[in-house]
Computed example of a mutant assay.
Amino acid sequence: MDKKNKIIIISLLSALLIALCVLVVEMKSTEKKAYQGLTEIEEDQNMEVENDDNSQYIDMSLEKDIEAHFQEDGIDHERVAYCITDLEHNIKYSMNEKDEFIAASIYKLPLAMLYYDKVNEGEYTLDSTFTYSGYMHEDAGVISSDYGIGSQVPLSDLLNDLIIYSDNDAGHILYENLGGWKEYKEAMTKYTDSISENYYTMDNVTTANTMNDVVTYLYDHKEDYKGLIKNMEKAEPGEYLDRDTQLSMPQKYGMYDYALNSVGFVECNTSYSIVVLTSLGDKGADVMANINRIAYEHFK
């Protein structure tokens, strides 16, 4: 082989080697980007196991499937928080669970629980009545349609309308009877020790962690809250968390301005509780429905 041919062959091999190196670098870069896409929120995502014996049931595919949905739909992670708890094995999967969001009407779930506790303890009966004062009127709803200012409203009506119709006047009457907004907030900490920085202000804020504690407590003591759970099943069935699964699951939804939230639980092969808080406007409905669909497919 003459010198000229050797040079040509060496040049071709060098070019091929360079091309292969570039290809490898590009493949590694693409792989890295894909990995970063799937782990973009790992710092915000958490997985907690209350019992080390249950570590065998950990399955990170749930969080990966939710993250894949976020990537596919271009969801802003900072505007969503969720907590999903495997109620059989006490494993919690979460994202942004300590971030404060506008609670909207999901505050009414622990408020109702406080009154069911009082009925169970004999402090009230469902026939007990509460005064409907003028300053408790917030907007048009079932209570304001059925009762005039100054009326005595039965607790049974207040609890039903509070959950089924998310009636704001019912909520106002009930938390004022506890002493006021801040007194209500203090009372409901019996269900949680996850209190955020601005929790005790007059702002209606919450976190996914806080509401996860509440709904987990509800599930663990569901025999004490049969009436409440039935009302949760009647409130907008097939919507919010339940939109894609159509399970008639018990849930409490809330919306205010750009906030759209819901909290509930699903009884299936591996029962789970779920909290989704969003500040995405109408897009929040798609996000919460998809997250619950993914969770149900995982646990069913």
Score class of each variant (00 low, 15 high):
E138R: 02
H137V: 08
E72N: 14
D139L: 05
H89R: 03
T131V: 12
Q45P: 08
T39P: 00
S29M: 14
D99P: 05
L62A: 08
Y107W: 14
D139A: 14
K92P: 06
L38F: 06
K118E: 01
V153P: 00
G148P: 02
I66F: 13
T129M: 00
Q152H: 06
A140W: 01
N160A: 05
I102L: 11
I143H: 02
K118R: 11
S145Q: 07
D161W: 04
S151V: 10
E123W: 06
D76H: 05
K92E: 04
Q71H: 08
I102M: 11
H89G: 11
E88H: 08
M113D: 08
L109M: 04
M95E: 14
S105D: 04
S94A: 09
G37F: 10
T30E: 07
T131R: 05
A112R: 09
I149Y: 00
E123L: 00
V80K: 03
H137W: 12
Y132W: 06
Y135M: 12
L158Q: 05
Y35W: 09
L155P: 01
N46Q: 01
D65C: 04
I75M: 02
K28H: 06
K33V: 07
E123R: 03
D139M: 04
D139F: 09
A170L: 04
D53Q: 14
G150W: 07
D99C: 06
Y107F: 14
H69Y: 14
K92T: 15
S145D: 05
L109T: 10
I102F: 12
E63M: 15
C83A: 11
A170M: 09
I102Q: 13
I91M: 10
E43W: 09
E26D: 14
Y165T: 05
D86Y: 04
G37C: 13
V25Y: 14
I58Q: 05
S128D: 01
S29T: 08
D117L: 04
A112C: 09
D65Q: 11
E97L: 04
E67P: 03
E26Q: 07
A112S: 11
D76Q: 13
D44V: 04
G37K: 15
E121N: 06
V25A: 14
S156W: 01
Y115T: 00
S128M: 03
D167G: 03
Q71Y: 02
S144N: 09
Y115K: 00
S94N: 07
L155R: 00
H69F: 15
P110M: 07
H69E: 08
R79H: 15
G37M: 13
E78A: 01
D169E: 03
D139R: 10
Q45A: 01
T39A: 07
L111E: 09
G134T: 15
G171H: 02
P110E: 12
L114D: 01
S55M: 08
G148S: 02
M60Y: 14
M27P: 00
H89Y: 07
I149L: 03
L38E: 12
N96H: 13
M60H: 13
K33S: 08
M27H: 12
M47S: 10
N54D: 03
L109P: 10
G74I: 00
E88N: 12
A112E: 03
D161G: 04
D52N: 01
